Structures are given as C-alpha cells and as structure tokens.
Simulated scan of single mutants.
Amino acid sequence: MTSENRPNPRFEEDMQFKRFAGPPRYNRVARGPVQHVRVVADNGVVIGYVWANDEDDAAGWLVPPGLGAAEINAGAAWLRKLRAAKAREIAPTTLLTELIRDTSDIQGSRVVPGSPAESTTLDELKELANQG
C-alpha cells in the first residue's frame, strides 16, 4: 500500500497579486525654492513647518527635533490637511494659502502670523527646522 503526499490543490493555484495605490500624496522632494508656514502649539512651541513647491507638485511636513508626545501628536492634524488637499487635487501653494486663511478645525496649534516665507531649497528649510 503506497500513500501519495499530494499537495493541497489550493497551493497549486496561480496567485494574483494586485498592487493597490494608497491615498494620493504630494511628492516629498522639491528641487527648487519652497514656500513654508511655521506652525506653533498653543504654548508657543514650534511643532513644524508645512512646505510647498508647485513645480514639483511637492509638499510636506517637517518636524523639529526634541518635541514631546503632545506636540508630535498635534502634527497629525497638519498631515491630514496635506493628504486632504492632495485628494482634492489642489496645488501645493494653494494649500498654504488655505492654511493661512483658516485652520479653525485644528485644535491646539496654529500657523504663525506673517507666513508664508520662502527658502531657496528644501535642505535650507530642513536646517531651519533642525534649529528648533
């Protein structure tokens, strides 16, 4: 009596892997100047910078080092703003204009008056963010 070890027929099926795109996002790299707004918590601590560059369809959120958990968590609302703006297919600098005009739906932080500013490169803005 011989027994055959036959594999389960499901293991012989051709698997179809499909790649699904995530939510739409702006590019994270800008080759030219970037406009940016500084964001502070209600206690005055800088919690990040929203930056934008229309030529590269790029925008992002930069966080200074050394923030506490509350400040880092406050940044999540700004990331949601970025993703929502891309989903609406608006230009990155138009997003900055919207943020300057109204962020009443974001609790605990705000755009600093006098924004936006411009940095010659994204790396320059990163250096500014790293200074706190």
Rank of each mutant, 00 (worst) to 15 (best):
V37M: 05
R10T: 11
V29D: 06
A69G: 10
A30Y: 09
H36L: 02
K18M: 13
E98C: 04
A69I: 05
L96Q: 03
V34D: 01
M15D: 06
A117W: 15
L79H: 11
A70G: 12
N130L: 13
V46W: 01
L96R: 01
P9F: 05
Q16N: 10
A85F: 05
D123A: 14
E12K: 11
R88V: 01
V112C: 08
K126N: 05
P113C: 04
R88E: 06
E71L: 02
R10V: 11
N43L: 02
L79C: 12
G48R: 00
D54E: 08
P7Y: 00
R6A: 11
A84M: 15
P65F: 02
V50R: 04
G114C: 14
A84C: 12
N27L: 08
T97E: 07
R25G: 00
A84N: 14
D123G: 09
D105W: 06
E118Y: 14
R88W: 04
I100D: 03
A30T: 06
R31Q: 12
Q35N: 12
P7Q: 03
G108S: 05
L82H: 11
P33N: 07
T103P: 15
L95D: 02
G66K: 01
E71A: 07
L125C: 14
V63C: 10
E55W: 07
P113N: 03
R19S: 09
D57R: 11
I100W: 01
A85D: 01
I90V: 15
I72C: 05
R25H: 07
N27T: 08
P33K: 11
D54T: 04
R19W: 11
E55C: 03
V46G: 12
K126W: 00
I106Q: 03
S119Y: 14
G132R: 02
L96N: 03
L82F: 12
V50I: 04
K81C: 05
R101W: 04
M15L: 15
L62W: 06
M15N: 03
N27K: 13
P92Q: 03
P116G: 13
L67S: 08
V29L: 08
